[in-house]
Design a protein around this nucleic acid. Structure first.
Lengths: 214, 214
DNA sequence: CCGGATCCGGGTTGATACTG
DNA sequence: CAGTATCAACCCGGATCCGG
């Protein structure tokens, strides 16, 4: 992208991360940590492969990501965020919070990846009973499985299943989000097709930070 | 901009404000309030007039701005942010904070407008002695004049001069910012060409929030 | 299969000129 | 003052190809 050429911090930030796809690439790296080229392409449906290669080059040049030559058995290069790159998490969180209301009117043809739920869930959920024993919830939606678990008053969200969990939520992404973010009661969500098994007390314990939307 | 087509709040936000120039237009409206078309063009050096017209149309369509037909004496249309548009201030503040370190290595040919300093100053300065009588500082840099004044523990930054002020700072933008944001001592700033007249105590009273950069 | 590079058609941007 | 019109240059998306 051509530089705005303005002596302004916002313009300078956009010179680096204002390109199309750039912030979405950083979203992927924030969620998943080190990624292979193909992992990124899978998490960014619609991106052209030459654009992904271009963006990764620019991001490395700007010190936002670095490349790791993974040792054998994998023998591939992994892309990681630098510390400077990780500092973009607050930017992405604010943009996501602002954009969350737009999901309500989302078109049905939208692509979806389960791991996209990690950041909004992690930013909005807290453990209301941090002194009781830890609990975890398995979330089955889309093509992958997420696990929510309490940890030090916070709620961590990880990709993949765990051997133990106190409850399982299974259903369409918007129903899962509406239930967990307190926009819908369990009964309504079930009526809309969501399935819930296990201890319902976890829903009173894992709650959104406030009445916030995203 | 073509939609990313992803069921993700970040992608939806970028569908609306991810276009080139869009966030800079919102910056202008945040700083100055209602603007005429020409005000916006002047505050966005480098933008093509057809792009400005396109972006304003899209922003109105998305409910980020609205048009006001200013009554005579001015008899022109003014562009305003809606409440939804004003909610982007936190996004812009985070992006600006992230981008602030990039100003250090800024090229000398960058365009500059004095009012671009309003948001970074207002976000980073507080009144360390909110119970004493209010003070104000006139800042002369670039082509316009700013006035800083304490108000309820905060520091407000407005465009234009005031009849009364306790001190005047006059010099290059980067020196003004370095002094006010605590990155440079007054003596060093003066040695670099900054001029300071009036009560130096205001510099111990109007201070950056922390050691933050932007 | 992985990590791209190359090519091409179409859409977007930027500069300038022009108009009500 | 507030845009529209025009057009060249650039960028994007999709497809294909290629070396490890």
């Amino acid at each position: 992208m051509r530089s705005y050429g303005q002596y302004c911090a916002l313009a300078k930030a956009l010179d680096v991360v204002g390109d199309r796809w750039t912030l979405l690439i950083i979203r992927e790296l924030l969620i998943r940590g080190g990624c292979r080229y193909t992992d990124l392409r899978d998490g960014l449906p619609g991106i052209a492969t030459n654009l992904l290669a271009d963006r990764l080059r620019e991001l490395e040049h700007h010190g936002i990501i670095y490349l790791e030559d993974a040792p054998p058995p994998v023998a591939t290069t992994l892309f990681h965020l630098t510390e400077r790159g990780k500092e973009l998490e607050t930017v992405i969180q604010k943009l996501g919070t602002w954009g969350a209301p737009l999901l309500a009117t989302s078109s049905r043809g939208d692509a979806f990846r389960t791991h996209w739920l990690v950041l909004p869930l992690q930013h909005n959920l807290i453990d209301r009973s941090p002194n009781e024993r830890p609990v975890s919830v398995e979330v089955r939606t889309g093509d992958e499985i997420l696990t929510l678990f309490t940890e030090g008053g916070r709620v961590r969200v990880d990709l993949g299943a765990r051997p133990h969990h106190n409850a399982v939520i299974h259903g369409a992404p918007h129903l899962v989000m509406a239930l967990l973010l307190g926009k819908m009661e369990l009964a309504s969500a079930k009526a809309a097709g969501l399935k819930f098994n296990g201890d319902q007390k976890v829903l009173r314990r894992i709650k959104p930070v406030s009445t916030s939307v995203s």
